[in-house]
Design a protein around this nucleic acid. Structure first.
Length: 816
DNA sequence: AGCACGCCGACT
DNA sequence: GTCGGCGTGCTC
């Protein structure tokens, strides 16, 4: 029998599994014909279940044989735009994830479905018909249901003695209970009650009619009469020091009215922003501005790499470009690394553009996040400033995308979908034919190379805005210090400078890439190193509570009194962590005030901001910290920056090690002498000759990129090759190797025909995490469309060797 | 990912 | 015989 014709929607359901990663077609009931659009979130029956799904296409045609119908359209406006739906499908293809995972990454998490089963008693059953075998079960179940006011959840029911899936199913089939599937989401709305005078013109008369004794009511009344406008109830209550009941009685008399209104949760409600106006440009800034405006004016897609030293005024250029975009009636996305989404950054945008700005970052509650997102979706704001995921802001007339500090690793998502915000940005500017601005003092090598070869437009900002010179950098050779008999972690130079800095009443920032007290604990007799029992990684000693901790899985235990291997008591900790530096500072500089910032001191909400605020207010002489203090800090009194061990990341087995070292040193140096005082930077290292350290010290930007590109070319790394890195993990040491070899063999099959290399399997950088053994396979190939497609397909097939639930395969792509 | 269906061993 | 274990296959 030929199928009927009708309107259908193609839908991806909320099941993140390969097996159902395809659109299913559903009938659109006539009454929803207009509501159901590409991007709509809908509720549909799926097998025996009811699920939420996203519409990716709406079409008229022949209906599938056993088509089901859409049950509900869940939002007034589709959460996704057709452009974003397209991006989601492309992400699934590029990043080898399911389409639904990609789509869900683009919307606030509160839109994700919640699924529950509830049980009620059937209304019309005959108690006598309950069979003997079920009688007892039904008895305790119906008691539990009545205790739960007529309803209990499936999970609660299953916890009752003797009740399980089969029993509930039988009771339901025989008509004694009803099982309800409850589909919902986590959307919550904040409401505020607003109060106003029902008829202000009769005010005087009504006031007269109030009982003489009702003082509070009179007070409330006068307050509203005086205000003459609608007032939020909380404001009224606090201004007149009244209880809610007083207001309620006035409402009941009909004298005043109130109403609950939905409103946005505004994380910045209690902040005022100082209005700022456009500053005038230097010549360099003006040229950069022109370069950015050109593609915007001409309506073409172009990426501009804005390579500017710290303090060269990039933000002001962003602000003025955005202002122009707004004039054209278009919208702007500004991405900022999570860590630098500080109040200062938000102030600058809110100060210039006020309520046209939405802010999205991970410190918002999910409700706040949703509200900020709603403002974007409804077109109530024109600018979004946010972290990585803000690249998915559902704007429809996008006029510019700005990625500040574009080299930051936080633009890359480390879980599925493993996207890079920079790549999504490229797709979006193609769609909207406009400008993407990548700003950085230390661009990623790939970006710099793309700019050099003309793929991006390169704009340099060499000068700091107020003409401040870059700080003087001294590289201290730690081998030399050791030879001179200085075994402390502070070189003579650093000691002297730090002493002088403090005596002048100025501040210093000390940087160390390791938290904890020491880096590892070793037995001096047998050489045994304490390792995490769940991860093959050495444990770090923490002095405060004499524990050893794993920084990967959080495992912690007391420092053992003797070596677990040979029972010797000579176990000692080696290496240097932030805690140890803090202790040593105290010894070397009695009375010194130190603020330590690392994961351990900033884990509580708001502690990050508080520590920075204290330092800014001069409550410490030294700010000592890890990675997190390298970025975007701007304190006028900081004149000395010290890097305790610049080598710490240089020797990691990662092709970006030199790049990261260079970037970090340059960023850290930028923290010194940003205002009226001159700055000094001291870099301590064992590798004084390494080009990444020299280039950072001498501010030889070009030199670094030239040398690094040579290295990358020589060793076949990005930007000259693309990489896929597969990490294969399994709880069984032997099985993981078998799978690894099998996968490598399958990947190798194409190498006779196509030009790509498969390296591995080798143990991954961390060979065991959380009781799973990890192997790595790397694939290198030259980027061209044919190879891209072929290798991607090979990798896709390789990941599908999944007959073992314990086997996990992660894939990430690099060099795009 | 669930959930049903279906085919096998242990128990009333 | 019946119950419930888990392997297989499907979901418009």
């Amino acid at each position: 029998m030929p199928g009927r014709n009708g309107w259908m929607a193609d839908i991806y359901v909320e099941v993140p599994a390969k097996a159902v990663d395809r659109p299913y077609s559903y009938l659109i009931p006539d009454e929803w014909r207009e509501e159901v659009q590409i991007g709509s979130r809908v509720q549909v029956p799926f097998g025996p279940r009811t699920l939420i799904g996203y519409v990716v296409d709406v079409r008229e045609g022949e209906l599938p044989p056993r088509v089901k119908a859409i049950q509900e359209v869940l939002d007034l406006q589709p959460p996704l735009t057709p452009e974003l739906v397209g991006i989601g499908r492309r992400m699934a293809d590029e990043y080898l994830c399911t389409t639904i995972t990609a789509l869900q990454a683009m919307v606030p998490s509160v839109l994700k479905g919640t699924y529950q089963k509830k049980i009620t008693l059937a209304t019309d059953y005959d108690q006598r018909e309950v069979s003997a075998s079920l009688e007892e079960m039904f008895g305790s179940l119906s008691q539990a249901i009545s205790e739960g006011n007529g309803v209990i959840s499936w999970d609660e029911a299953c916890q009752i003695q003797g009740i399980h899936r089969g029993i509930l199913k039988r009771l339901s089939e025989q008509g004694f209970i009803r099982i309800h599937e409850v589909v919902g989401d986590k959307i919550t709305k904040q409401t505020t009650t607003w109060v106003w005078l029902t008829s202000p013109s009769d005010g005087e008369m009504m006031l007269r009619d109030l009982p003489k004794r009702a003082m509070k009511q009179r007070e409330v009344f006068s307050y509203l009469l005086e205000k003459g406008v609608e007032v939020p109830l909380p404001d009224l209550l606090s201004a007149t020091a009244t209880a809610r009941t007083t207001v309620k009685s006035l409402v009941e008399k009909g004298i005043i009215s109130w109403e609950e209104r939905e409103e946005y949760r505004d994380p910045y409600a209690h902040r005022t922003f100082e209005q700022t106006t456009a500053l005038s440009f230097t010549d360099e800034q003006a040229a950069a501005f022109e370069a950015i405006m050109k593609p915007i004016e001409q309506g073409e897609a172009e990426t501009i790499l804005l390579h500017g030293v710290t303090g060269s005024g990039k933000t002001e250029i962003y602000l003025q470009a955005i202002a122009e975009v707004l004039v054209k009636g278009k919208e702007a996305i500004v991405l900022v690394p999570e860590i630098s989404l500080t109040p200062q950054m938000v102030d600058r945008f809110k100060g210039r553009f006020g309520s046209q700005v939405a802010v999205l970052h991970s410190r918002l509650s999910s409700g706040e996040r949703f509200d900020e997102w709603l403002k974007i979706r409804r077109g109530e704001v024109k600018i979004v400033v946010g972290a990585r995921s803000a690249i998915f802001a559902p704007f429809e007339r996008l006029g510019i995308i700005i990625i500040d500090e574009e080299h930051e690793s936080s633009y890359k998502q480390e879980e599925n979908p493993r996207y890079h915000a920079r790549e999504i940005a490229q797709w979006r500017i193609q769609e909207h034919q406009t400008a993407l601005v990548l700003g950085s003092a230390t661009p990623q090598v790939e970006s710099y190379y793309a700019a050099r070869t003309g793929e991006y437009r390169l704009v340099n900002l060499h000068k700091r805005v107020h003409g401040r010179p870059l700080p003087e950098v001294e590289v201290v050779d730690l081998r030399e210090e050791l030879a001179q008999g200085n075994r402390s972690m502070f070189s003579r130079s650093l000691k002297t400078e730090l002493m002088e800095c403090i005596n002048r009443g100025e501040q210093a920032v000390l940087f160390l890439n390791r938290r904890g007290y020491s880096t590892f604990v070793m037995c001096r007799d047998c050489g045994e190193t304490l390792a995490c029992p769940h991860c093959e990684i050495s444990l770090t000693y923490h002095e405060t509570n004499r524990t050893v901790r794993c920084h990967y899985c959080g495992y912690a235990s007391q420092l053992p009194k003797c070596c677990p291997q040979c029972e010797s008591e000579h176990i000692r900790h080696f290496g240097t962590g932030t805690q140890k530096v803090e202790a040593e500072l105290g010894k070397a500089f009695p009375g010194i005030r130190v603020i330590r910032m690392d994961v351990d001191t900033t884990s509580r909400k708001g502690s990050h901001e508080r520590l920075l605020h204290d330092f800014g207010a001069g409550r410490a002489d030294v700010l000592l910290g890890t990675q997190m203090i390298a970025k975007g800090l701007d304190f006028p009194k900081v004149t000395l920056v010290g890097v305790i061990a610049a080598d710490s990341m240089l020797h990691l087995p990662d092709f970006r090690a030199a790049e990261r070292t260079y970037q970090l040193l340059t960023q850290v140096s930028g923290r010194a002498g940003r205002h009226e005082y001159l700055g000094k930077v001291i870099i301590q290292t064992y590798s004084t000759d390494h080009y990444s350290i020299q280039a950072a010290a001498e501010h030889w930007i070009e030199d670094f990129y030239r040398q690094e590109c040579q290295m990358r070319k020589l060793h076949l790394y990005p930007p000259f090759r693309r990489l896929y890195t597969m990490v294969i993990s399994h709880p069984d040491r032997v099985r993981v190797l078998q799978y690894g070899q099998e996968i490598a063999r399958s990947l190798n099959q194409g190498t006779f025909q196509y030009d790509y290399q498969v390296l591995g399997p080798v143990p991954a950088m961390i060979p065991k995490i959380k009781d799973r053994y990890r192997l790595q396979i790397m694939i290198k190939y030259e980027a061209n469309p044919d190879l891209n497609a072929y290798v991607k397909e090979r990798v896709r097939q390789a990941t599908q060797v999944q007959d073992d639930a314990d086997l996990r395969i992660q894939v990430q792509r690099d060099g795009v």
